[in-house]
Design a protein around this nucleic acid. Structure first.
Lengths: 201, 201
DNA sequence: GTCTATAGGTGGATAGAC
DNA sequence: GTCTATCCACCTATAGAC
């Protein structure tokens, strides 16, 4: 609002975020610069500073937009009305698509660099994970009630495990350039949530 | 060998690695510099370059030493003769101690920055994860044979899930400055590997 | 909104004296 | 092995013209 001036005032800012997002997801917050973005867009560094005065501003905007889009996706899944296991698989698919573009989850990436991030970015980051685990906890509890899922212990702890496992599996799969690693880990994890007696192999 | 000259020739190099390791584990490869290390040790940047000519050399040495120490730990666990579940818990404890020092696993950290790493460091990194999953796979297969563990599917896939989940859980726990998050996720995961019928909650 | 120009700092790295 | 001195590339950020 404050800065959206002309007809396409926001368009450039979005373009900047698009490029910066990809760089951040592949190289990390400390692995890209205004110069990288400028070169790719065909604009000067000074112009970037007009849209995002400091890199902290840019980082905060990146996480905020990423979280907003993620939340839109999870809201859509919730509205699908499918059973909890299907919802979970759709949720995993969101991560899988990010990995398919040879990117790491923006927030998992930033979590690694957490200690070096501007405070505003750190706060925005935690909001993302809080929101995700809140959503997952809801789906897990629903699944338990419905009988669509099975697990011991608190739904919140399972949600934490899911988040950690998804982020970690992405991290490793990307290092190996092998998305099937991610698939295998996720399938292994989802097996444990499927409601049937599994005393033996 | 090549560079160990005087009586304490290797001592300084080790000291450098100690400081660099901590910086790398908390700030990432792109989050620390020769200047940081120099200031902390009380030596000049130029002297650091004597021991590690390029940052790529330093990075490779960091991962190599970290992997060596990790392997010594896993070898010790293997030699303990405990059953597979206990071995697994001891393995988790190695990660937990790293987190307890407010550090991320060096290799998980570098995995995030993978795309920006010198090639030699990338190679060394994959060797670490390969070795870890090889070890885990062995313990998992042993546990299945002994009846000390239970899981469906291939041991290698479970090993991949464990590695990913451990790294990811560390990543998130450190962002929250809350080691109990890690504990909760790991306990939740280990539950699924304990050999008793778990059809219901 | 975008540009040129530049400031002020830090990055990794080298030469050469001691 | 460690130092001083220095190089040059790159970083984030700002001033001011258009």
């Amino acid at each position: 609002m404050a800065r959206t001036v002309g007809a396409n005032g926001a368009a450039t800012a979005e373009h900047i975020l698009d490029v910066a997002e990809r760089l951040a997801q592949t190289r990390g917050f400390n692995g890209f610069s205004y110069a990288h973005i400028a070169a790719e867009i065909g604009i000067t560094k000074a112009s970037l500073h007009y849209h995002f005065p400091s890199k902290a501003d840019l980082g905060r905007a990146l996480v905020a937009r990423y979280a907003k889009n993620f939340q839109a996706a999870t809201a859509g899944i919730l509205a699908s009305g499918e059973d909890a296991l299907v919802k979970l698989k759709q949720y995993v698919l969101v991560y899988r698509q990010v990995l398919g573009a040879d990117r790491m989850c923006l927030c998992g990436m930033f979590a690694a660099e957490y200690a070096t991030l501007p405070e505003q970015v750190q706060q925005e980051l935690r909001r993302f994970f809080d929101e995700n685990e809140r959503w997952l906890t809801g789906v897990l509890e629903e699944g338990l009630r419905q009988g669509a899922l099975q697990f011991e212990g608190h739904a919140r702890d399972v949600a934490g495990l899911l988040t950690g496992a998804l982020e970690g599996s992405m991290l490793l799969a990307r290092s190996y350039g092998d998305g099937t690693r991610f698939n295998a880990s996720v399938e292994q994890l989802l097996k444990t949530l499927v409601p049937r007696p599994r005393a033996r192999a």
